[in-house]
């Protein structure tokens, strides 16, 4: 083999590179934000929905007592939209206020439990018992105790939201990596500094996991409470129980539809907030790349 001098060999290596342009990343790839425009994104779910709609109408035509025709459900909604809106608003208020109460209580107790082992041993068994007790069973008792006002509804909603937040946040507050703890221990950080500067931000991803569970749960809590208080004046749960006693199947499904929309909207909101608040977290950086 003939040895080439360095300039020659360099020229040989460089030549083909100069002729062939560098491979360019395919243009026309949509940013993740706009990915929903593409048919491959929305078509599967739309096809499935249309198919289910036909199946529903087929069943409804032959068994009107099993399912109401979709046109009837739509008719119920369109006939008196403000009725559904005001009832949905009432349910939403109960859900969000109950959630706020449950959140504050659970977060404060999570801090207490994670800072004091003694408090953990006292509180956690009780919290677990509360969690395994069906809230549907507690709701009537609360209605007897507090009447048909907002209190029993708020208590049921707060209780249903309480446990997931408590468990996740107390775990999150305790999940600071040991080497981070060592760095801040040698700086002699106080417990309060540790809590605010290190523990609470570390617990943030855990908190959002809990919130994504608890936001839809809060609607469930509110509806369960409304169903248990048949005399209650408003709320989608009340709408359902009144329509149920009148055998208005279309109205029941119209209210269920509103609840599904409400739950999805809450989930979308919390997901958007999470994306902002946790932009630094691995799970978010993963999606970007």
């Amino acid at each position: 083999m003939v040895l080439m001098n360095p300039t020659e060999s360099a020229a040989v290596v460089d030549a083909p590179r100069a002729e062939q342009p560098l491979p360019v990343k395919k243009v026309g790839k949509l940013s993740p934000r706009l990915a929903f425009i593409k048919p491959s994104f929305w078509l599967p779910v739309v096809v499935l929905l249309v198919a289910l709609g036909f199946l529903w109408n087929f069943v409804a035509k032959n068994n009107p007592y099993l399912l109401p025709p979709l046109s009837d459900v739509w008719g119920a909604l369109a006939h008196n939209p403000s009725y559904y809106v005001s009832n949905a608003w009432s349910t939403l208020q109960v859900a969000l206020i109950g959630l706020a109460i449950g959140f504050v209580a659970a977060y404060l107790i999570a801090i207490l439990v994670s800072e004091l082992p003694l408090a953990k041993r006292a509180i956690m068994p009780l919290a677990v018992v509360l969690n395994v007790t069906p809230l549907v069973a507690i709701a009537p008792a609360l209605v007897i105790a507090f009447g048909f006002g907002p209190q029993p509804k708020l208590i049921v909603t707060a209780l249903i939201c309480f446990f997931p937040i408590l468990i996740n946040v107390s775990t999150g507050l305790r999940s600071v990596p040991s080497q981070v703890l060592q760095v801040f221990t040698t700086l002699h950080a106080s417990r309060l500094e540790m809590l605010f500067h290190v523990r609470m931000p570390t617990a943030l991803p855990y908190l959002f996991t809990a919130l994504r569970i608890v936001f839809p749960l809060s609607i469930i809590g509110a509806v369960v409470a409304e169903l248990s208080a048949p005399g209650a004046a408003e709320g989608l749960g009340t709408t359902i129980s009144i329509a149920f006693s009148n055998s208005q199947l279309a109205v029941v499904y119209a209210a269920i539809f509103c609840l599904a929309v409400l739950g999805s909207a809450l989930l979308a909101i919390i997901t958007a907030i999470e994306r902002r608040a946790l932009h630094w977290h691995e799970s978010m950086l993963d999606n970007k790349s």
């Binding site: 990596p177 080497q179 040698t186 943030l204 977290h281």
Partner: peptide, 13 residues
């Protein structure tokens, strides 16, 4: 005392 542990132990946020 300034400590540099085995992992960087930075605050990711």
């Amino acid at each position: 005392i300034g400590l540099v542990p085995q992992t960087p132990a930075l605050l990711p946020w």
